[in-house]
Design a protein around this nucleic acid. Sequence first.
RNA 1: GGUCCUGUGGCCGAGUGGCUAGGCAGAGCUCUGCAAAAGCUCCUACAGCGGUUCGAAUCCGCUCGGGACCUCCA
Length: 497
Amino acid sequence: MSQLKVYNSLTRQKEIFKPITSGHVGMYVCGPTVSGESHLGHARPYITFDVVYRYLTYLGNKVRYVRNITDAGHFEEEGREAVDKIATKAVLEKLEPMELVQKYTNLFHWAMAQFNTISPSIEPTATGHIVEQVEMIKQIIEAGFGYEVNGSVYFDVKKYAASHDYGKLSGRVIDDLLETTRELEGQEEKRDRADFALWKAAAPEHIMRWQSPWGVGYPGWHIECSAMATKYLGAQFDIHGGGMDLLFPHHESEIAQSTICNHTAPVRYWIHNNMITINGRKMGKSYNNVIKLTELFSGNHPILEKAYHPMTIRFFILQTHYRSTLDFSNEALQASEKGLKRLWEAHEKLQAMHYEPQEGTTDPELESRIPKLVAEFNEFMDDDFSTAKVMANMFEIVPVINSMKDKTIPVSAISKQTFELLQGSFKTWLEDIFGLKSVSEADNARLQGVMQLLIDIRKEAKGKKDFVTSDKIRNQLAQLGITLKDEKGGDMSWSVE
RNA sequence: GGUCCUGUGGCCGAGUGGCUAGGCAGAGCUCUGCAAAAGCUCCUACAGCGGUUCGAAUCCGCUCGGGACCUCCA
């Protein structure tokens, strides 16, 4: 049994994964800001870490998976005015802030269910942890690393950097940060350009506001994750995940805050997924190239040639290593769609198959190759979650399964033991670890009964060489989006578009 | 401007210095009443130029592309 190795952004190398407490894993993943609809880019981390979660569980760990909901507006600087994203949007849509947040939270949960992701163990909200955040800020001030100006509190990065390595995670050099030529507005209050807000005083028109020792305001951008991760996972925990774009300043600042409060580095393994790009460019609001998940599922977007099933997206994401960029295109997605169909149909055939021993039919080549390919599933996954390589191995096995189904290879070409290994592994890996499920809407007993009837009639017609009737059945079903296939040996199978 | 990543066949994408990943598309064949599916075979690429090495897509250097972060961002 090989050991799980993960690429740690902090050390920039693959390390053997060892949880702090053997058999238990604490994992925190940065969740969505529910001020708007999630898009394709957001799907990547949640699917990636869903598989990480599933795999760690499969390895026998008890995993506490915490993923926050950011429902308190994060600080956004637009021109001179500091505007709270959620508050602004709420005014536009004429909704109560919490109403808006609820709407998008529900939508997010719906999308995650479409992707068949497992719900986190704890899904804390920022608004539900204002007290914890205030407490943490107090601690930072007491420790001498925070200062108050006009009702806002900032983190003193320069002071922190004197005794700690600020920039360790993101590879940033503090002096470079200070020298940045970029002109930023609304920074007059800060002692230093590199400082970041822990608490912001709320302007009168700001709707989301809470009482604090420094006046009415709202929490800064990074503090919620520090506070909630500490609360639910402790001063130090195993894994912190999120998109690469959060490395700086978000995660870097999180480390600084938590280190001051908890006197220890908060995270053992930082895991970051890469971006989904479109025409080589990161998908993001600022680039105006966003495809929302609802649009993706419905096909209702000018870029989209058709609707894409959530499982196609999931498969598409898992066919690439999580640390590589993944470029969106209709062509690529349609390739995934077809690939997944082939793989899944083979999987279903395999599960429905029965082993029949037959003397002298064993194929030594297959008998040695299949277990090897299956054993590599674990090896590849242990190598920093190489889902793409596991998929590749599965595709190598697909022709064998199809041939067995068509009886061009006897099932007994492999031993019963190997057959059961294969059957079990496909189920475990595709369904439990990769979290894929059937795309078909055919899981309906009544429809299955109707189809069986049509198949029986068609078989009779074919038996009488009445091809007019048999073609009529097949053609009209095709028009309804149901594909009927004649198989070797006279059987027929069907699938819904 | 600073820091970092990256450039693989028609497309998408794995790739640990030596043993042609895989998917999609394309071509041929087999099976088949036809169709679809499936099976078999073919298509063997690593931006360019140098260097290290017995041997480089993989290491080093330079050049040229592309991107991310430095500002909300998955």
